[in-house]
Amino acid sequence: MRDLGAGLRYLGRGQRWVLTHGRWFGFGLLPALITLVLYAAALTALGFYADDIAAWATPFADDWGSTGRMLTRGVFAVMLWLAVLMLAVVTFAAVALLIGEPFYEKLSEKVEESEGGTSGAVEQPLWREVWTALTDSLYVLSRTLLFTVPLFFLGFVPVIGQTVVPVLGFCVSGFFLTLELTSVAMQRRGVPVRERLRMLRSRKALALGFGVPLTLAFLVPLLAVPLMPGAVAGATFLVRDLDGERPHPDAGATPPPYPAHGTQAPPPPAWH
């Protein structure tokens, strides 16, 4: 529960940071707005053709009675649209980050500077950063599909499909949304995507506390655009936690039990 609350606080802290740095808030709006327009057009087109896709995907229902055929294809069309919507929520950040790579990289860098800078930053040319972001996003998408495809079919199971599956769907979407958003600050540190995944798996509650509320917020029309800059800023704060560059929000002033790498332990207290 501690990590769950910490993830939520990082999300709120990122939103506050961009709101108090208005220039960077506006800086991050344009890529998100372009992405929203593209996704809205795609989801609208899917809504128009969902019935045709359902009929094509369920030829076995052609000889059924009209009630059974309509019910089956109607459920399939709704589940398909919802599955694509959840996938769109997860990939929205990835596409926005690709479109606005220079914007969000600069925004994240400014957040780092406000916290004392980044240790061990890896400098790369822009084309290399974009290429890495693209390949990493494809990897994350493939991992996401490993969960979303089975959940799509489980959605047809009575009771479970209407209760447990949606909850699991939001958790999966929230986790991978966090993975996408942390890619900017992680890439600056030269952390490969598989290592990022391992780090977030070790702190699942932290990733869910950050990503699940954001996933729910992204479902609200137009809300993803103003939240995107703060999401990148909040993910940068979260990465600093994972990277050990700042104490955990709940850690207070308690010193770590072991010295950080590359530093010397403080001298023992003098006993009198």
Rank of each mutant, 00 (worst) to 15 (best):
Met1Gly: 13
Leu4Phe: 09
Leu4Lys: 07
Gly5Cys: 02
Gly7Val: 04
Leu8Cys: 08
Leu11Arg: 05
Gly12Ala: 11
Arg16Tyr: 08
Trp17Arg: 04
Trp17Ile: 02
Val18Thr: 10
Leu19Pro: 03
Phe25Asn: 03
Gly26Ile: 13
Gly28Ala: 11
Pro31Lys: 03
Ala32Pro: 12
Val37Gln: 01
Leu43Met: 09
Leu46His: 00
Leu46Gln: 05
Phe48Ile: 02
Tyr49Arg: 12
Ala50Leu: 04
Asp52Ser: 15
Asp52Tyr: 04
Asp52Ala: 15
Ile53Tyr: 14
Trp56Arg: 13
Ala57Glu: 14
Phe60Met: 15
Phe60Cys: 14
Ala61Trp: 00
Ser66Val: 01
Ser66Phe: 11
Met70Asn: 15
Leu71Gln: 06
Arg73Val: 12
Gly74Gln: 07
Ala77Gly: 10
Val78Glu: 10
Met79Cys: 11
Met79Asp: 05
Leu80Tyr: 08
Ala83Cys: 13
Ala83Asp: 08
Ala83His: 02
Val84Lys: 01
Val84Trp: 11
Leu85Trp: 10
Met86Thr: 06
Val90Asp: 00
Ala94Gln: 02
Val95Asp: 00
Leu98Thr: 00
Phe103Lys: 13
Tyr104Arg: 07
Glu105Pro: 04
Glu105Arg: 14
Lys110Trp: 11
Glu112Asn: 09
Glu113Asp: 12
Glu113Met: 11
Ser114Leu: 13
Ser114Asp: 14
Ser114Tyr: 15
Gly116Cys: 03
Thr118Arg: 15
Ala121Trp: 01
Val122Asp: 12
Glu123Arg: 06
Pro125Ile: 00
Pro125Gln: 00
Trp127Asp: 12
Val130Cys: 13
Thr132Phe: 15
Thr135Trp: 11
Thr135Met: 10
Leu138Cys: 10
Val140Ile: 07
Arg143Lys: 13
Leu146His: 14
Thr148Tyr: 14
Pro150Trp: 02
Leu151Pro: 07
Phe152Glu: 12
Gly155Met: 07
Gln162Cys: 05
Gln162Glu: 09
Thr163Met: 10
Val167Asp: 04
Val167Thr: 10
Val167Ala: 11
Gly169Cys: 08
Phe170Arg: 02
Phe170His: 07
Cys171Val: 11
Cys171Gly: 08
Gly174Met: 00
Leu177Tyr: 01
Leu177Ala: 08
Thr178Pro: 04
Thr178Val: 15
Leu181Gln: 06
Thr182Phe: 01
Ser183Glu: 03
Gln187Ala: 14
Arg188Ser: 06
Val193Tyr: 03
Glu195Ile: 03
Met199Tyr: 05
Arg203Cys: 06
Gly209Asp: 00
Gly209Lys: 03
Phe210Asp: 01
Thr215Lys: 01
Leu216Asp: 03
Leu216Asn: 01
Ala217Lys: 02
Ala217Asn: 05
Phe218Gly: 07
Leu219Gly: 09
Leu219Gln: 09
Val220Asp: 00
Val220Gln: 09
Ala224Val: 10
Leu227Gln: 01
Pro229Glu: 03
Pro229His: 10
Ala231Leu: 06
Ala231Lys: 02
Gly234Lys: 07
Gly234Val: 08
Leu238Ser: 05
Leu238Pro: 08
Val239Pro: 07
Val239Met: 15
Arg240Thr: 10
Arg240Gly: 03
Arg240Val: 01
Arg240Ser: 02
Leu242Met: 08
Gly244Pro: 09
Pro247Arg: 04
Ala251Thr: 14
Thr254Met: 07
Ala260Cys: 04
Gly262His: 03
Pro268Tyr: 14
Pro268Arg: 12
Pro268Gly: 08
Pro269Ile: 00
Trp271Ile: 13
